[in-house]
Amino acid sequence: MAAVIFRNDPAFEDAILDRASVAFGVFDGVHEGHRFIIGEAVNTAREEEVPSAVITFDIDPDEIFAADRLKKLMTNETRIAKLAELDVDAVVVLPFSREFAAQSPEGFLNACFGSAVPSHIHIGSDFHFGRKAAGNVESLRAWGAKRGMTVHGHELVAEGGVPVTATRIRGLLSEGKAREAASLLGRPYTLAGTVRPGRGEGRDFGFATANLEVPPLLLAIGEGVYACYAVVEGERYRAAVNVGIPATFADTANQNIEVHILDFDKDIYGQAIEVEFVEWLRAMRAFDSADELIATVQANIAWVRENL
């Protein structure tokens, strides 16, 4: 596990980055393309026998500049923790703000690195920084050349002839394509939340649910019913999951994730659970009768039991 070092911690020392080989980016999702760039930074570090590091921000810049349309793939805390699981010596977390971003590209880089400049920096070819995102790979090369830093601008990893990006993964998830998104993430798309009391209809119908309220910013997955795994106290259980407000109960519903965990009847109110999305089963819809609702849900549960 890599050391996580926050730049705004009084104990931070610029020297951690001096002559190191680093990968720089936001890395929301820590997906296949991100891991390639970080892996290249590690390879360079090993070849030159220098430390390796990931440089990232404490928040996603789009939380400031595109908050109305952003759907994050994970929380900032989870993103940083996932980066720390990779084979690097350190994860350096820079505080991001509107003022920080408004600096000139050169001022931005000076603020990032101080007097300690890496020997190598690995970035994606779409890397931009500074005021109005005016900085790019070429301007970073010019800045680095004066300081003995080699800049490696990598073409984005592609799958199916299309670059692997967080935006592409968000698009797949919004369409319910959980399996396709997982292939680009390198793992199932996962949501976490705390179990809250729900409406109670599920228990009345014979399939109790654990109800999660997830902030819209973190709800990248599209509405529908999914085959999933639920992780409760470290144990994985098969689950059928509704995402979105059930149309039949639209007047009284507020939970946006309802998790029916198969073969499970513990009281987990107030506990945090994780949901791993595996397969889209059907769209959300209103039912003409309780019997039709029950039969459909039972069929979804049977599919999960037989296929997961």
Score class of each variant (00 low, 15 high):
Ala3Cys: 01
Arg7Trp: 10
Arg19Ile: 04
Arg19Ala: 12
Phe24Cys: 11
Phe24Ile: 14
Gly25Ile: 05
Val30Gln: 02
His31Thr: 05
Glu32Ile: 11
Phe36Thr: 00
Glu40Pro: 01
Pro61Phe: 04
Arg69Glu: 11
Lys72Phe: 04
Thr75Trp: 00
Asp87Asn: 13
Val91Ile: 03
Phe96Glu: 08
Ala101Ser: 15
Gln103Gly: 09
Ser104Gln: 06
Leu109Val: 08
Ala111Met: 10
Ala111His: 09
Gly114Met: 05
Gly130Cys: 08
Gly130Asn: 08
Val151Asn: 01
Leu156Thr: 14
Ile169Ala: 13
Leu173Ser: 11
Lys177Phe: 03
Ala178Asp: 01
Arg179Lys: 09
Ala182Cys: 05
Leu185Cys: 09
Leu191Asp: 02
Leu191Glu: 01
Leu191His: 03
Glu201Asn: 14
Ala208His: 10
Ala210Tyr: 00
Glu213Gln: 12
Pro215Ala: 12
Tyr226Met: 07
Gly234Trp: 10
Arg236Leu: 05
Tyr237Phe: 13
Thr248Pro: 07
Phe249Ser: 10
Thr252Gln: 04
Val259Arg: 00
Asp263Gln: 14
Ile268Glu: 01
Ile268Phe: 02
Ile268Arg: 01
Tyr269Glu: 04
Gly270Asn: 01
Glu274Arg: 13
Val275Asp: 00
Phe277Arg: 08
Phe287Glu: 10
Ser289Trp: 07
Val297Pro: 00
Leu308Asp: 00
